[in-house]
Amino acid sequence: MLLEVENLCVNYGHIEAIRDISFGVKEGSITSLIGANGAGKTTTLKTISGLRKVRQGKVVFDGKDITHLPPYERVKLGISQSPEGRGCFPGMTVRENLDMGAYVRNDRRSAAYLSDLDRVFELFPRLKERISQTAGTMSGGEQQMLAIGRALMAKPRLILLDEPSMGLAPKFIQQIFSIITEINHQGTTVLLVEQNAAQALKRSDSAHILETGAIVRSGTGRELAGDDSVRAAYLGGDV
């Protein structure tokens, strides 16, 4: 397992945001966390990135206990996150945002860096067109692409994607999921948080369903997509 979350509990003040969550993310896989608003998906991701304090439990990355490591150290280890919603730096240009993604890298003038930039532009040609535009003036979908592209610039081993399809027009949703699959095929392990369960399950190797801060079902994407109760609760009856 590249990432292991063991018996994780996180509080917001006195409220338990997640209770006793355990799951693993296999190297090279796409793993999804599915659930309604407020189920604790985003909190789980933020805890893995180090933005939330752990009350109990462990986070292990590549065999190393990172439970109490500050967020910037985790980025260096290879965990990169595209945050929920408009997580771009609004006052920076597209290029500056992408450079921020590579903040922990020291090879900003090398050919490897430029080829990573090109790879992002291949995945998101739109970003290349807008390279000197300020992120705050772009559409929600473009900002979403930028946030994902920026997370890739860190050359992560594990990329955490928080609701990548949120606020996108239906035709872009399909596209963003193909891009996620593409990123995975290029060798990056993906942990995906989604409300769009149909798309997420279709593309996931394994998935976990969160309800009010706890995991209630786990399985392969295919198993869960075929499960009647999951279909009724999250897929609106038909896939």
Partner: peptide
């Protein structure tokens, strides 16, 4: 500069800046 960019990022959005690897 890199540090300057880290400062600007922290000013705009401290949490996202931390996700980029900025030591706030």
């Amino acid at each position: 500069s890199r540090l300057g960019r880290g400062i600007r990022a922290t000013a705009q959005d401290p949490e996202t800046a931390a996700l980029m690897g900025v030591n706030s």
